[in-house]
Amino acid sequence: MSHWLDAGVRGFWRVAGRAVNLAGDDSWLAAPTSLSPRVADSWLDAEAERLGGRLEHNSVGGGLLPSMAMLDGPGFSAAALRPEIRDFYEHTADWRLEVWSAWSPLFWPGGELISRLYGRRVEQLALPMRPLDVAHGMDSRVTLISDAAGAQVGAAWERMLRGSGRHVFSGCYSARRLPGSDHMSVHVAFPLEAGNVQVFLRPSVTAEGALLLESPSGRFGEDGAYVVVEERGSAHAVRVPLHETFHVYVDPAGVLRTDHELRLRGRWVTRLHYRLERREA
């Protein structure tokens, strides 16, 4: 049953999307995929092989980006960020997180259906549906991905429910410049069997030194969310009307926090709140 369901979903995205050349003009969409239906961390070895590089598992002090200065450009200066925020992104493995979730009543039934049929089974994009789902907290693990020259080209950030050990998210983080763009974007790819979901987030800094990451509405080739399917010797991609905002800030008590909102077109779908603290604390 699940095999036919997954194949049907990929077939839908092939029809809805456009043909892309991931080795040519559309290489900005080249990203890890999973070779098996259950994602978890199964994609890591294949990605290292594709890049001709190596993996550094359970990296101590490893970050989602080697330096936030990689994003410097119009509308963004890493030097203007609060130092706690820079430290989190550059040394993510040194931080632990607690999370709370809330769902829009309008989208909760659809989210629950997707979670039951898909997210929990494949252990990817399995958004927590109820506050008690994350009552015991969330663990995370960072694996650095290096190219043949030893330079960090990506970082896998896996998040697991502390109570069950089940994967919730498994994403590959890097910085990329979209074709014709004047700025760098934070690129996050969530591998799936024979494809992935990708988000390109535009960074900016508030007057208080907080970080905003946004995937706004726009055209194909601009910041936003994409679904890519690689199957039958070809690749197809479609831009989807999912929009995200991350607000990473230090509260008046000196605690690092993140507000994450996911929207479908103009309506909010789910909101996540993260409390972040250094492990030695």
Rank of each mutant, 00 (worst) to 15 (best):
A155E: 09
V188I: 12
S174W: 00
G171T: 05
Q152C: 11
P191T: 12
L113Y: 04
H136W: 13
P131S: 08
E123W: 00
G111Q: 07
V168P: 01
S185M: 12
G119K: 00
V188G: 01
L125D: 13
R141T: 04
A149F: 05
A151I: 08
S101T: 15
A135Q: 06
W108T: 12
R159V: 06
A155W: 04
R141G: 03
M160S: 14
R141E: 11
Q152D: 11
P105K: 06
A151E: 12
I114E: 14
C172E: 14
L132P: 01
A151D: 12
E98Q: 12
R130Y: 10
S104F: 13
M184T: 13
R176E: 15
L106P: 08
S181H: 09
Y118C: 15
F190H: 08
M129T: 10
P128A: 02
E112P: 00
L178Q: 11
Q152S: 12
D182T: 06
R121Q: 05
S170M: 03
F107T: 05
G110D: 09
L97E: 14
R116C: 02
E112G: 04
M184P: 06
M184L: 10
A189D: 15
E98T: 08
E98A: 08
E158R: 15
L132V: 11
R162N: 06
V188E: 07
E158K: 14
Q124S: 15
L125E: 12
L161H: 09
D133S: 11
A175V: 10
A175C: 10
Y118R: 13
S140N: 12
E112N: 05
L178F: 08
D133Q: 03
S174E: 07
V186L: 12
L178M: 10
L178G: 07
A155H: 07
Q152K: 13
G154K: 04
L106V: 15
S115N: 12
H136I: 03
S115F: 07
Y118E: 14
F190Q: 10
L97C: 15
R176P: 09
A149S: 14
L132H: 06
E123F: 01
I145P: 05
A156C: 14
S185R: 04
D147F: 01
D182H: 08
S146V: 10
P105E: 05
